[in-house]
Amino acid sequence: MTMTATAPVTDERVGKKSTLSKILGRPEIGALVGAVALFIFFAAVAPVFLQPASIATVLYGASTIGIMAVGVSLLMIGGEFDLSTGVAVISSALMASLFSWYFSMNVWVGVALALVMSLGVGFINGWILIKTQLPSFIVTLATFLMLTGLNLGLTRAIGGSVSTPSISNMDGFDSAKAIFASSVNIAGVEVKITVFIWIAMVAVASWILLRTRVGNWIFASGGDSNAARAVGVPVVKTKIGLFMAVGFCAWVLGMHNLFAFATVQSGEGIGNEFLYIIAAVIGGCLLTGGYGSAIGGAIGAFIFGMANKGIVYAEWNPDWFKFFLGLMLLLATIVNLVVKRRAEQK
């Protein structure tokens, strides 16, 4: 073949993209601007907000949302939803706690079993979704209800109460606490270990998302699963894997809850699934999938942490907190919509 290329086809209507508009095209940019604005705002109205110890507290509050938001963000980029995340965290903690307690075993056995269970719940979510082709909203809503019932029912059946017996004096508790619920002293400030776990998980998730084949598959599965399947992307495996990743995050947070407080209330966690989704959406993940970032979810969680604690530092009436959270969500979603429209412009 000795053909010379035809004259390049360019569309004269497409203007040159400036670096600025490239930056503005990043999914997390809206959230980042919001986070910076919020930070400056609270720093101005409540000087105590800027103390290192206060920032550590804000980060801790953000990390317990953020750890789950990592998994939830990836899942949303992959085009699916999980409403069972809030109670799944507690299920994992209950599993570890009740198993270890009932059989009087080293708590690490319970921890390992909880991991298996959490991954299993994720697998089942994904598997049912794929097999039935039902929307993930319905499937995980069912899981949410079932887990809520199991949490309450099994805790009472096994432990005889609605909260688990304390396991703080059992073997392995101290080593598990050191890993899941300790603090690290940085220049005189106690920073909870969940902050570091969170940052590490965001880093790993970002790397997977942007620099590995799996990441490419996640974007493709969420963006257009039919197209992805047609070019040989293992969409089924990718989606099930994503649900299992969410399960893993639930396990990490569940273990933190268990070892930080030694007992778990079986009714906890309900409603938190929305916080994780809110963090992911504020961070620029599209509800329809195919777009977003792990860092965005982290920034979303940080915004939540700042707003939640900032109101306390500023000593404001918290009655309005939910209103502002809703407003923030609405604004973030609108920004995302605009971004998506721009990206899809022909």
Partner: peptide, 23 residues
């Protein structure tokens, strides 16, 4: 009075910490 989200112990803990730092 301080309001916390009772369904999430980690949020209870961090919000009370924040309050003590502020007050």
């Amino acid at each position: 009075v301080l309001y916390v989200q009772g369904t999430d112990m980690t949020q209870v803990e961090s919000t009370v910490t924040a309050k003590l730092q502020a007050t």
